[in-house]
Amino acid sequence: MYSIATLSRWVASINYWHRASGLPLPGRSACVKDALANARRAYKQNGDRPTKRAHPLRIGELEGIVGASRRDATTWAKRARERRDSALLLVGFAGALRRCELSVLTIADVAQCRDGDLRIQRPGSHEGLVEGSITHVQSSRDHTMCAPCAYRRWLEVVSAVDGFGRPGVIRLLHQDEEFEGHVCLSEAPVVDDPALPVFRAIRANGNINSVALSGAAIHAAIRRRAALAGHPHEFVERVGGESLRAGAAADRLDNDSQRDRSLRRTG
């Protein structure tokens, strides 16, 4: 018997290829949603394969991980991977996205607004998501932790590889240019095929595929970046693909709690 996570990933993958082909998404049908809900309910009642709660990545930890990744980007191939992983971390956290949502996210799903914010069309195949739901990711005051800036920096790489291949990426990243300010307000790079995935696999030699990162690869990338930032093995083993969403939820609860305390003091 397969786990709910495996079934959900399969549905998300099927939806991705149907979307890329311009076909209706089977995962949005009522029968598929009902089948997943019933299976999840049965697992809960039977006590089978309990869900492992994700360890939240908090904003301070995320800041250290992103900073370490950028300091380690000493070659063009490492700079490409840093831009992808920084965008993955910051967009995933700011949008409270699951790893399956990050995996199937396409260029067409992300729109850049005039004020620099991102408007993300979330896939509707996962349990609990309303069909056609929209997530707004706001730019932050600190450009180093700005999710729209990180997304645009990675989009430059995607545009370069789609337009000119490996030589285009090398030309873009051959020098280590300082990231000194916001870039989210500048015009977004053009990508020829918006149906292609946002987050793509990168080979050891720097070649960037058109294949989407799998959920397992996203999980591994988060752990790899946490280890690079110097976190102990015990911490690295606890974080993973759902830690971004869990961290966003934890920070939101903390902010709401602080706001409530402030209202009680001043009310």
Rank of each mutant, 00 (worst) to 15 (best):
V158F: 03
A212W: 14
R245L: 11
A226Y: 11
A201H: 06
A249N: 04
L185G: 04
P232H: 14
V130H: 09
R119A: 00
Q138K: 06
P197L: 03
G247R: 09
N205G: 13
E242L: 14
L118P: 00
V236F: 09
L213T: 07
S243C: 13
M145G: 10
D176V: 08
V157P: 10
E177S: 02
L244P: 13
V190E: 02
A221K: 04
E178M: 01
F199W: 07
A227R: 07
V198G: 01
E237L: 05
P189H: 03
A147E: 01
H126R: 15
P197F: 00
P189G: 05
E127D: 06
R171L: 14
E156H: 12
L196Y: 07
A204H: 15
A249S: 05
E234Y: 09
S214I: 01
R223I: 02
A217V: 15
T135V: 15
D176E: 04
R238I: 13
C184R: 08
E237F: 09
I208R: 09
L196T: 12
A160C: 13
A160Q: 08
V239K: 02
G165K: 07
T135H: 02
A147R: 00
H182G: 10
E234G: 15
S140H: 03
Q138M: 14
H143N: 00
R238K: 13
Q175R: 13
A249H: 02
H182R: 02
R141M: 03
G241M: 10
F164D: 12
N205E: 14
H136Q: 14
R238Q: 09
F235Y: 09
R152H: 02
Q121L: 05
P189E: 01
A201E: 04
D142I: 06
P189F: 07
V130Y: 09
A195W: 05
G165C: 06
V183Q: 07
N209W: 12
M145S: 05
R122S: 01
R171C: 15
S214K: 09
I134N: 01
F164A: 14
I202V: 15
S186K: 11
I202C: 13
A217W: 03
A147K: 01
D192W: 06
E131H: 08
D192K: 14
R238F: 11
N207K: 15
D142N: 15
R245W: 01
I170E: 10
E156F: 11
H143S: 02
P148W: 02
E127G: 11
D193M: 12
P194R: 06
G247H: 03
R119Q: 05
A201F: 10
G240D: 08
G163R: 14
F179K: 07
V183M: 11
L244N: 12
G206I: 03
G128S: 07
E178T: 06
D192F: 14
A221W: 04
F164M: 08
L228W: 12
L118C: 00
A246K: 00
G163N: 14
C149M: 12
L244C: 12
A227I: 10
L172S: 04
W154M: 03
G163W: 09
G128N: 06
H174Q: 12
V158G: 03
G181K: 04
S214T: 11
G181W: 00
P123R: 15
A188C: 07
I134L: 12
R238L: 09
G241A: 02
G163C: 10
P194V: 02
A212G: 08
I170A: 10
I202H: 04
L129T: 15
N207M: 13
